[in-house]
Amino acid sequence: MKLIIGAMHEELQDSIAYFNLTKVENEKFLIYKNDEIMFCITGVGLVNSAAQLAYILTKYEIEWIINIGTSGSCDDSLKQGDVVLIDKVYNSVADATAFGYAYGQVPRMPKYYETNKTNITNKIQFEKIKNIASSDIFIHSLDQVNLFVNKIEDKASVLDMECFAYAQTAYLFDKAFSVIKIVSDVVGKTDANNIQFNEFIKIASKEILKMLKKIL
């Protein structure tokens, strides 16, 4: 079974309706499924994301995890509405450098998690392939970008509060993991953020459905 996972119901609501999914859990975890695919809405934050994905992977047989949704960016080459295939996933607030680890590396774990891009690119071609950095901080200023994101050894262009938790959980459970993000705003680039988020997310939900029709 393929699992589509994301933070917000608004991002996936058009896809949930289109694929005619049944809500199977609605207490601590919001899960929809049919015989072939499952959608999970985890809510925001690293702990919510890790806990809910771990719960699913211990209860259901999942072969491929796809995180798809909206994310911010700190890359001037990107603009609102750009669709980005994620390559590497970093943690922008882990700091064990005093023990010889790279900034962003959780001790005794990989420096980053590389996503499965082949499963996606076999069906959709992407012009933009970027890295993502996650934290429990809503990064909305250039000062925050410099303080957290720019300390990572590699360039991280996309920002969110969930993806690293999904990636590390998928790694621990040895599951294929892919990520597609739609840029909702660019930090420090006000002229690129023309549509307010409450309206933009409705547009993004329809774009997500278009992509999932091709992938699934």
Rank of each mutant, 00 (worst) to 15 (best):
S71G: 10
Y101A: 10
E63A: 14
I68E: 05
G72P: 07
A102Q: 13
I120P: 05
V89E: 02
C163E: 03
I124P: 02
K175G: 08
F164C: 07
K151N: 13
V179E: 00
K181R: 13
Q105G: 10
S135F: 04
T118R: 10
A176M: 15
T169F: 00
Y112C: 12
N116F: 07
N67M: 14
A176I: 08
A176C: 09
G69A: 03
A156W: 00
T121R: 04
N146G: 13
D136F: 03
E63L: 13
T121P: 05
N119W: 09
V106E: 13
M109G: 12
F177E: 07
A170Y: 00
S77K: 10
D75P: 11
F126Y: 11
M109W: 08
D87T: 00
E61T: 14
D82H: 08
N116C: 15
L159G: 05
A94G: 04
I120L: 10
L147W: 14
Q144H: 08
L78A: 04
Y171K: 02
K175P: 01
F177H: 11
V158R: 07
F99H: 12
D76V: 14
C163H: 00
I86E: 01
V149W: 05
I180V: 09
S73W: 07
R108A: 14
V106D: 12
T115W: 06
C74N: 13
K117T: 12
C74I: 10
E127D: 14
D75I: 09
V93S: 11
Q80E: 08
K79N: 13
K117H: 12
I152Q: 00
I129Y: 01
M109R: 12
P110Y: 10
L172E: 15
Y103W: 02
C163A: 11
D160H: 11
D76M: 14
S77Q: 15
N122F: 02
K130D: 06
G81C: 04
T115S: 01
A176D: 12
Q125V: 11
Q168K: 11
E61W: 05
T97V: 06
D76G: 14
C74E: 08
S141M: 07
T121K: 06
K181V: 01
I120Q: 03
A156D: 00
T169A: 02
N67Y: 09
Y103L: 02
F138G: 03
Y103K: 07
N131D: 02
I120N: 10
R108G: 09
L159Y: 06
Q80R: 06
L142R: 12
M161Q: 14
K128D: 06
I132S: 00
I124C: 03
M109Y: 11
A176S: 15
